[in-house]
Write a protein that binds this DNA or RNA. Structure first.
Length: 427
RNA sequence: GUGGAUGUAGCUCAAUGGCAGAGCCCUGGACUGUGGCUCCAGUGGUUGCGGGUUCGAGCCCCGUCGUCCACCCCA
């Protein structure tokens, strides 16, 4: 028997209701915020990610599915969405000539990691990106959207971490990184091997290290909060004021630096302790220079992405719909099957979901199937009904039956369906 | 990439080195044109795969593949 590659899974119909609840909540919230969907490719030239995310990041250096096309060009299955959205934004004059643009996306991402709880090789994300303003309002807006989506799907016990990592300017992160380097160089021997390497290439990432020795050193290290330039400090304050005004609770975490190189100023994460070794189910931040990196004109931007499978692990179980099929047709074979088939077509054309089993053996057998499919009604066309072109509608919840002419069936079911809407699952 | 667990029926799991089992599911019957509840019966297995030890292996040993969990990293 053939199996799936590790960390790549099928999503069976049983999970789709919960799945749609998460993606549906995201789509609703995005629509309310005037964000519009963009469908970006599943693979890109490798350069899009290496240049966009940074060569030294773990994702680019060891977690991408990369291969050559037949012409020898290097392609990569997207490990995240932002780089592609930015590339698409820059490529399209219709959009990047606007003073601002709002996008959201939803789909699978790929990372060559070892699978575990909440971590897959093919996993799904939705995310939103805003282009065109450095106003802290937009940092707040994307955070507030993710906050609202979490609430809608029933995730309540999360913590929102926020931080500002400043801008690359000499009087801001530049100076801070110099001080960080000096501090950690003095304590070089206590650092883990990875962090010794980070010291030269990306000292900021040391703050993100969870090794005991490195984590202990963080306490005495210089804090980014003390080194923000005036405009970055004002920006950060602005973001927090917006969050306060909207009563979005957050915790400041001066060590939140994120794993991708493109972030500037605001970074944030939605974290929980219910995901095993993982803790974030959504994260994002501002990336004011990424559009330029892709050859566009300087355009500040901010966005986030959320892991759908992770949210599914966290979301409370919603009530299962009382019925998912409107009508199941029970027939007695021969002419009554022919009439049932015709009635099923009629029902479907009227927007009523209908199913039947042409091989249906006994009535008992067919009723069992109706029950298993959670049918709201069964429609019986046996020998008696077939002879007089009628049908018997049975309400599966109450057990009551009603016989009527077959052509009145769709209207009758439609009527009960809308009338009974509020009663679904009441007993 | 590193480490630890684990793999038996469709599912959840039993079985001291000695006849491969239970519950649920599924199929049928009690109820011949009426589901759920109950009762009865039945189907279902190369014990992941390949070697080895043994009179005898689901169990012990070696290898391999898969899965889970953790490190790491991240959504």
């Amino acid at each position: 028997m053939l199996s799936n590659p590790p960390g790549i899974e099928d999503i069976y119909p049983d999970r789709i209701d919960a799945w749609d609840r998460v993606t549906g909540a995201a789509r609703d919230v995005f629509r309310l915020g005037n964000y519009r969907e963009i469908i970006i490719p599943i693979m890109e030239y490798t350069e899009v990610f290496s240049r966009g995310l940074g060569d030294e990041t773990d994702i680019v250096s060891k977690e991408m599915f990369t291969f050559e096309d037949r012409g020898g060009r290097s392609l990569t299955l997207r490990p995240e969405g932002t780089a592609s959205v930015v590339r698409a934004y820059v490529a399209n004059g219709e959009y990047n000539r606007l003073s601002s643009a709002k996008f959201f996306y939803c789909g699978p991402m790929f990372r060559a990691e070892r699978p575990q709880k909440g971590r897959l090789r093919q996993f799904n994300q939705f995310g939103a990106e805003f282009f065109g303003s450095s106003d802290p309002y937009y940092d707040y807006e994307v955070i507030a959207m993710m906050h609202a989506i979490s609430r809608r799907v029933g995730i309540g016990d999360f913590t929102l971490l926020v931080n500002s990592i400043g801008c690359p300017g000499a009087d801001c992160r530049g100076e801070f990184i110099e001080q960080l380097k000096r501090y950690f160089t003095n304590h070089r021997e206590a650092l883990c091997e990875d962090c010794k390497r980070r010291l030269d290439r990306n000292p900021l990432r040391i703050l993100d290290c969870k090794q005991e020795g490195c984590a202990a050193l963080k306490k005495g290290s210089p804090s980014i909060a003390d080194h923000l330039c005036q405009s970055c400090r004002e920006h950060y304050t602005g973001v927090k004021e917006h969050l306060d005004a909207a009563s979005v609770a957050y915790t400041e975490d001066p060590f939140l630096v994120r794993g991708l190189d493109y972030y500037t100023r605001t970074t944030f994460e939605f974290v929980t302790d219910r995901l095993g070794g993982q803790n974030a189910f959504a994260a994002g931040g501002r990336y004011d220079s990424l559009v330029e990196t892709f050859g566009g004109k300087p355009t500040p931007a901010v966005g986030f992405a959320a892991g759908i499978e992770r949210m599914l692990l966290l979301a409370g179980d919603a009530a299962i719909p009382a019925s998912r099929l409107d009508a199941y047709l029970v027939h007695g074979g021969g002419e009554s099957l022919r009439q049932a088939t015709a009635l099923a077509r009629l029902l479907r054309e009227s927007g009523i979901s209908a199913d039947l089993d042409p091989q249906g053996k006994s009535f008992k057998n067919q009723f069992k199937k109706a029950d298993r499919e959670s049918a709201r009604f069964t429609v019986i066309i046996g020998g008696d009904e077939a002879a007089e072109r009628s049908c018997t509608i049975k309400d599966m919840a109450t057990g009551s039956q009603e016989k009527l002419p077959a052509d009145e069936c769709p209207a009758r079911i439609r009527e009960s369906l809308t009338g009974a809407k509020g009663r679904h699952g009441s007993d």
